[in-house]
Design a protein around this nucleic acid. Sequence first.
DNA 1: TGCCTATATGCTCTTTTTTGCATATAATAT
DNA 2: ATATTATATGCAAAAAAGAGCATATAGGCA
Lengths: 124, 124
Amino acid sequence: MNEYADIFKALGDVTRLRILNLLLQAGKKLCVCEIVDALHLPQYRVSKSLALLKNSKLVTVAREGTWVYYGLNPELPPFFKAIFSLMKKHFQDVFSDDAGKIHSRLALRENGKCVIGFKCNEKK
Amino acid sequence: MNEYADIFKALGDVTRLRILNLLLQAGKKLCVCEIVDALHLPQYRVSKSLALLKNSKLVTVAREGTWVYYGLNPELPPFFKAIFSLMKKHFQDVFSDDAGKIHSRLALRENGKCVIGFKCNEKK
DNA sequence: TGCCTATATGCTCTTTTTTGCATATAATAT
DNA sequence: ATATTATATGCAAAAAAGAGCATATAGGCA
């Protein structure tokens, strides 16, 4: 199909937008349980959204032991890098709760690493 | 759902992206037959894409007699205006044929108005 | 080895989107 | 009216996306 359409399609979903926003606002790689906890969404849903974002090359993955960290792909074409910086700026207000939650969650890290699982089992 | 996700979804389709690109590169309102001609797509497909873009508030419509002109919505929120200017810049290369075609088509206008229908009946 | 925790994925059901065709509407001219 | 041209839209089939649940995999540790 078309590279640009595909990426816009990947952006056309609230869960995925919220995940990307977390990564943007946190400014660092996040592990899956941190995202699950911040978004209050079922784990399988977060994992599936992350899988799609990874297929679209928007995020990259790095496993560290049991934990898996996702980060924004630093090798994105300039066009989408520009869109990401727009999102970073504008989404602060749109998903403001999420940003707060991820920051409290990040405060629980030890030596910069996630050491707890997710406490949130809410089905939304 | 979510305003941003909805608009990204509207951008997640090649036909719609190509239409928006025409509007961006032309810098003026275009009538449906001009778009059909430039994109070499069936008329119903262009009309349906335009209808969706209109529902997403990305474009506006103005009928002038038999002809209907579509233009970029000047009242978009700043976030999407910014995305549009990114698209205008970057899509010049991506859909370069389209831009050439719409310019030759626009050369056929008289007094700034479209005076011919579409000559292209191609099914792709 | 076996168990626990973190994460991924297969499967099914449901909902949305896309595609194509045929037809409807709208405006103009005869 | 009727015909013609421009545009929109209803409908049905096909394809794709989303939601939920259950289960699989993978790594760490007893």
